[in-house]
């Protein structure tokens, strides 16, 4: 197995209620092969042994696909390694004796519940407002009954890679959710099953995003650099396009009625 183990100083954000502060901890003998979350487990065991309150942090699958883990490590959501979630970040990416600052996602729509755990209900509300296809469920239809060109299917799959972790919001200087909404809107708007509700979906999801209090996109591209799933700014461009078209169509849509008081 691998060679040396690490000793680290951790500055961890501790919060109960509305205010929090940094707490400093020392951990020793951390294997380079352990994941960041395993290192946090070791820290928590150490805190519990000393009679303290363990650090609350989100995690679930620990395989990089569920989107639960959410730590800002040295200012970078999911840490310094591109294309991975915190659970897939290994301690070999850190140096012995290093001080690591660990903060929660910081955004108004993502209030801290405790320590490093934030409430990402805002994302669920965005999905509930349009991130679906209203279609009668029943037994699955034949897979090839609706022809979808390969490049369209590939593109939709690229967008569908989004695991909704919120790293885009956390990394954005404006705490904007455009990469998340762009990916979700593009995924459904690209496919024939989703096209029927394209305009309504785009308008509704952007409205919910705005109402939640996310910032706007400044096109700096921090989100794309932070995304563990490689979602690109292309999907934000597609959202901008689809929204413009939907807005114009909505502006000139027929009400189906004669104007009141007209002839």
């Amino acid at each position: 197995m691998s060679g040396k183990n690490l000793s680290l100083t951790l500055r961890v954000w501790r919060q109960t209620g509305t205010t929090g502060k940094f707490e400093e901890y020392k951990v020793t003998d951390i294997s380079e092969d352990s994941s960041f979350l395993e290192m946090m487990d070791i820290l928590n065991e150490q805190i519990i042994k000393n009679g303290g309150e363990p650090v609350a942090f989100d995690h679930d699958c620990r395989e990089g696909i569920c989107g639960m883990c959410s730590m800002t490590i040295n200012g970078m959501p999911h840490g310094p390694l591109p294309g991975v979630t915190t659970c897939q970040l290994h301690m070999r990416n850190f140096k012995d004796g290093e001080t690591i600052t660990i903060e929660p996602w910081r955004a108004r729509p993502f209030p801290v519940i405790k320590d490093l755990v934030v409430d990402r209900t805002a994302f669920d509300k965005i999905i509930q407002s349009g991130g679906f296809i209203s279609i009668r469920t029943g037994s699955a239809i034949d897979a090839n009954i609706i022809p979808i060109p390969k490049d369209v299917a590939d593109r939709a799959m690229d967008a569908a890679e989004c695991i909704g972790c919120g790293a885009c919001v956390a990394s954005c200087k404006n705490a904007s959710a455009m990469l998340f909404v762009g990916a979700k809107v593009s995924q459904l708007n690209s496919l024939p099953q989703g096209k029927a509700e394209k305009d309504r979906r785009t308008l509704a999801m952007v409205k919910t995003m705005d109402d939640a209090g996310f910032g706007s996109c400044t096109n700096y591209g921090e989100c794309q650099a932070a995304c563990p799933k490689g979602i690109t700014l292309d999907f934000i461009a597609q959202l901008n396009r689809d929204y413009a078209v939907a807005k114009v169509k909505d502006f000139f849509k027929s009400t189906g009625k004669k104007r009141a008081g007209g002839d």
Partner: peptide, 17 residues
Amino acid sequence: ENRAARPEQYEFKTSRN
């Protein structure tokens, strides 16, 4: 709006783009 969207700033500020 962009300032209001992040009331509490990160202590460790960095950019990777």
